[in-house]
Simulated scan of single mutants.
Amino acid sequence: MAFRRRAKSYPLFSQEFLIHNHADIGFCLVLCVLVALMFEATAKTAFLFILPQYNISVPTADGELVHYRCGLKDSITILFYIFIAIILHAVVQEYVLDKINRRLHLSKIKHSKFNESGQLVAFHLTSMIWCLYVAVTEGYVSNLRSLWENYPHIFLPFQVKFFYLCQLAYWLHALPELYFQKVRKEEIPRQLQYIVLYLVHVAGAYLLNLTRLGLILLLLQYVAEFLFHMARLFYFTDENNEKLFNAWAVVFVVTRLITLTLSVLAVGFGLARVENQAFEPEKGNFNTLLFRLCVLFVVCLSQAWMMWRFICFQLRRRREYWKEQSARQRAAAAPTPFAKQQSKPVKRESGYHENGVVKAENGTSPRTKKLKSP
């Protein structure tokens, strides 16, 4: 982490220097923003990086309630939290995952997948708890009608907007991390797929004012992904431990069904009954028939794609399982060299045995051979 001693130094501004010190560089930039808060001349600019913008005070019976809208200045805040995500990524990698990897002695391929799952377990667990807390405190779980009532949801509570900014920052930081972590070329397309998928869904829910529905769908998705990456971590420590994969398979199918049901209920039926159905981008209203069909198409397409990958994954696991079982059965059925030696017929001398002495057919003892003296 920052200011730690390194066994090897690299030339300044070189590629290796950037890769091995990217977390320290990000830490210095974050520190500059925090120092800027101490001076009156720069404090106003520093707040653009740290706090969400476009706040509006809404008068209520108990006083004033502060809400937030989305805008271009959010990109500045997201940029700041990208550096925060890079620093946290390096902390988890160096102080947790690297120490575990030294004990496990994994191969290069398993080492890369272990690091990927370890990072995502930490992120999914944090996001799952945070998402559940926001959904419960804002009343989205107790009142499902709030997912589509009073659309468009332009004014967001602080915790909802901050949650979406942090989500966008994390998935955007995952793109340069592919370079910083030296991910193998074979793994980059697979990781890019789910990174882009998350960015499209999170950014779409935030910009199209579907934040309430997006929050619940993210909660469902993070529960399934958390179980999957936990199962991978346990599998890397012990390859015979596959029970969590079975639990994940059940949760994955259930979350796909709930996701499709909620999407059709909220977008297909809920928004269709909202009185204001007009295309007004300046007011944040996109509630038209074409908009609803596009949203449902994207959601259904992504769920079908994930289900297809899930089926292929399960079929591949079954093939590997049956191949391993058949190999074990062949190994058990094949006679061992010792068994072959024992199965050879023993050549017996002619005659019969009597009191341990071989008798000839005519009752006389066979003539013993005389040994030559050395």
Rank of each mutant, 00 (worst) to 15 (best):
F297N: 05
V274H: 05
R292I: 02
Q341K: 14
Q325C: 04
Q277V: 05
L260F: 09
K323P: 00
E349L: 14
W308E: 03
M306C: 12
M306K: 05
Y321G: 11
N355G: 14
L257C: 14
R292D: 01
F313Q: 07
L271D: 01
F269I: 09
S263C: 02
A331R: 12
W308G: 14
A266H: 04
Q341Y: 11
K323G: 15
F297I: 04
P335Y: 01
R292Q: 03
I258L: 14
C300L: 13
H353W: 13
K340W: 12
C294F: 12
A272I: 09
K283E: 10
L257A: 15
Q342E: 12
V298D: 02
L271E: 00
G270D: 00
F297R: 04
Q325G: 04
L289Y: 06
G284R: 02
G363S: 05
Q329V: 07
W305K: 12
T364K: 15
C300V: 05
W308D: 08
L289G: 04
F279W: 09
Y352S: 11
G268C: 01
Y352T: 03
Q303F: 05
T261P: 02
P337V: 12
A360L: 14
A360G: 15
G351R: 00
Q325P: 00
V358E: 00
G363I: 03
G270C: 01
M306D: 06
L260H: 07
L260K: 06
G270V: 03
R273D: 05
G363E: 04
R273M: 04
